[in-house]
Design a protein around this nucleic acid. Structure first.
Lengths: 225, 225
DNA sequence: ACAAAAGTGTTATAAGTACACCCATGG
DNA sequence: CCATGGGTGTACTTATAACACTTTTGT
């Protein structure tokens, strides 16, 4: 990626993907350890790479996402394009950043086992980041927080079936504030997004919780909070 | 722009700017007549051009905006990046689209006089558009409508001093629906965005209107409608 | 029987919506 | 004096916010 860029007269395009999920009651970001100078190996970066001449930018993002996670049917949306001249020390690269949400339960299976240098980091204790990836990740975090309030994207963070408390926790973790249980349920039901399964979650030393699923698993604009 | 691109192995970057204003009670878009094949001269496009290797994408957008309008201090925000493989018949060009808002009163002075092939078109009767610019302009229109409801960007469409009715009309024109005068004023005042000047607008055959100005002329997130 | 999370309504406050008349001016 | 847009308040409806106890399970 690095040296080859010098010969271009114009900027070239890359994508970077901020992959988010919830693990251990924390919002986490998938990062890859940097190897190239000038970034010592204490630096990490969101996965990304150049857009090929025969693929759309969206497809480049999908390709890189699939490579890194192995998971399919992931929520992916364009975030913002970062085009400062010196954002990449290896050359003039403009990055179209995306953000992706993957369900908590799919997570432990893939990724971290193949590469020792791919790792989840909690959003609130990120390592040193290469390029302008700090800015990119912050923007992804903001977008996620806003979008949670006016859309149903939470579906892409949860397993197929889940309890109302799990759903509420996801909101609380991302928004960083506690929500009232009764008001939360009232609101969620009023927007008709959930379908009650007839299953319940047993096994914990308390009253079992009803399991729900999303009735629509495509992005919908609905005001939730 | 055209032939030179073939030699690049990767996509190159351009910006396109959707410049919007209100003229004659209509939301209008600034377009430039196309000359190059395969677009006959019935095709128009939003102004744009390649990003130079030594300028940021934001600066490229500002530069092109200044060239086309001659106006300074214009509201400009990144809209979305369009990266389909075949969006540009001249080569593999990824476009970072921006949208700009310019005040109604600055408008008549510049632009249209210098170039016969630069022209304002009402949003609701656009000509044939080159590239994917129809999609881009639609996206700009959507963004503007949404943003009007949760921010103060209206300031960038109005002259320094304006009447409440002028402000309300701007909202109505962009949102394509009538608003209640009293409720509109109540809301606008409640968010503390306006400052009453001690001037009034005379000259029309009716009671003169008080002139207001925005107290903050930078983008603010406030829920207005 | 106890600990732990599930589940469930009501009241108060704030925000949004609908609606009609008088006022000040220029011609 | 009349046509035109400017300016103002109230009642109703809907949404949001605060708040506590009973239920069901596993150990």
């Amino acid at each position: 990626m690095a040296k080859t860029l010098k010969k271009y007269n114009y900027a070239v395009i890359a994508t970077d993907i901020v992959i988010l999920t919830i693990i251990k009651q924390k919002l986490q970001v998938l990062l890859i350890k940097m190897k190239k100078v000038p970034y010592s190996n204490n630096f990490w970066a969101a996965p990304g790479g150049l857009v090929k001449p025969d693929e759309s930018v969206d497809n480049a993002a999908k390709r890189q996402l699939a490579q890194k996670t192995g998971v399919k049917n992931i929520y992916l949306e364009q975030l913002y394009t970062f085009g400062d001249v010196n954002r990449d020390p290896f050359g003039r690269v403009v990055s179209v950043a995306y953000f992706a949400l993957i369900p908590s339960d799919n997570v432990n299976l893939k990724t971290t086992k193949d590469y020792g240098d791919v790792q989840w980091f909690p959003m609130d204790s990120l390592p040193k980041l290469a390029y302008d990836h700090k800015k990119i990740i912050e923007k992804a975090n903001n977008r996620l927080q806003k979008k949670l309030e006016y859309s149903n994207i939470a579906y892409s963070l949860l397993p197929k079936e889940f309890t109302l408390t799990q759903l509420q926790r996801s909101y609380e973790i991302i928004l960083k504030r506690r929500l009232d249980k009764r008001n939360f349920r009232k609101k969620i039901f009023s927007v008709n997004l959930l379908k009650k399964t007839n299953k319940i979650q047993r096994g914990s030393a308390n009253r079992p919780a009803a399991l729900y699923e999303f009735s629509k698993k495509t992005a919908q604009m609905v005001s939730i909070l």
